[in-house]
Design a binder for these strands. Sequence first.
DNA 1: GTTGTTACCTGTACGC
DNA 2: TGCGTACAGGTAACAA
Length: 262
Amino acid sequence: MPELPEVETVVRTLRPLLVGRRILNAEFGQLRVLRGLPSDTAQSLAGQRVVAIERHGKFIAIRLERGYLVVHLGMTGKLLVDAARTKWTHAIFTLDRGVMMFDDPRQFGRIEYGAELPARVVALGPEPLEVSLEEFARRLKERRSPIKAVLLNQAVVRGVGNIYADEALFRAGVSPKRVAASLRKDRVKKIFDAMREVLAEAIESRGSSVSNYVDAEGRKGSFQNSHRVYQRGGEPCVTCGGPIRRIVLAQRGTHYCPKCQS
DNA sequence: GTTGTTACCTGTACGC
DNA sequence: TGCGTACAGGTAACAA
């Protein structure tokens, strides 16, 4: 599933293929991923040049001359360039060189278009790779939920999802069940460092290919081979050898080592 | 304002 | 082999 490292990889592969290109034509299906798109969107997009491609947490913002095409990949969404059309292709953008399409079997993704970035994208918390330790600590201090739920909350930091929350907490040695506001300063710093470390490593590995994730050129990532706890329930902990436990927390499968994460 | 719960959706794994 | 079922989870909407 696409989280910050996967979306960053998609954005990095899209940039050289899309920036400077002009949209000649846009075709949309009728499915829920397009809910709320004005009926004249295709006409609005036609003729516009791609100025830049930005990532805002897990949102991809394709900046055009007169607006933003904003894409969220959801669970199984893919933005592909020059790929084959499938029965789950919901949008096709014909460019002056190449074709970009949005494909999403599970239909948790979204496409929006407007003159400005959507308000809820602007309102997201800071980027975890840019936020200061002091700001991160301040945001945790005011949350009385389990730290796992807080890391998943996009209003606290943008871009962390289930995989990287589990992996960061394992590296920090902190139980996912600990109430965020109760964490001592040194624990917060461990989480802060681990979160940044795991995200940076995952970007370096071009993301984790669990489910059907591929980048804009159809290539898989490799960070799934470096997961230490995520989807390793029952397997031995890489540190102590004890079994990794799987629980449900914040309505999400949560994987941790009860011995190493206190 | 914060926190928790549910709906959305299909492919995959598994048991029988 | 074929069928039914459980499970995966990011966000929005809603309730408490």
